[in-house]
Amino acid sequence: MSEAALSGASEALTMTGRSLRLSRRNVDALITALALPVLLLLIFVYFFGGAIDTGTGTWYVTYVVPGVLLLCAGFGAASTAQAVTEDLKGGIIDRFRSLDIGGTPILAGHVLASTARNLLATSLVFALSFAIGFRPAASPAGWLAAIGLLVAYITALSWLSAAVGLLVRSPEAAGGFTFFISFLPYPSSAFVPTDTMPPWLQGFATCQPVTQVIEAVRGLLLGQPIGATGWVALAWCAGITAVATTAAGLLFRRRVLA
């Protein structure tokens, strides 16, 4: 690895430590980020689950766990936007830049911290769903692939969120993005199969990235063949990440070099 990359990596690690400390102390947000998945899981399984027939012959919890995971991943990743706008409000970015630290390590720190936060929420959802009867049939490789895909999804949304944080001017506006992202899993196969939706919605719901990721994660966890879905999902995540990191780089330069 080149010297610059090495130093960039060490800076990103320090930045991640910072972001993690900041999120640990933002107690309200942390409680929300951990309580939300738990509540959503319970609501979907016990309130709605009885009435939903997914046509898969399994108990609803088995169907819905990947959906809850993605819903919460979106919500958690979107808080990256708020963290970035907070940074831009004060003088800290100037201080980092005067230490010759580029935008990438600063943003990567927020993204990595977001991933860590989300994996904590994910573990919580898994633990609870096991307790209420979720019985996945995944092989160790399937588990690894499912978690890898979740991480890729969280990373993609976190970078997108970081770019949004650089675009908007206030934490409130960043909050609007959270709302949008949290809404995306509803018109997907997260909670009900897409073929139960009206035709005009079906097209979008079947093709959108959330459905691809959910179908792949669900298939992997249940030990079912997923065909190319896994690759399609991964391609979506990689594509979003590529676009978002490029946009974030440009926006960072525009915001701070004025």
Binding site: E11, G17, R95
Partner: peptide, 26 residues
């Protein structure tokens, strides 16, 4: 050089020591 700007460049939600250790690491 170093720059101390008009707006504080320290994290409110870190301790004084944590802020300085972070800057030193960077």
């Amino acid at each position: 050089i170093s720059l101390t700007g008009q707006f504080a460049a320290v994290d409110e939600m870190q301790t004084g020591a944590e802020n300085l250790r972070m800057m030193a690491r960077l």
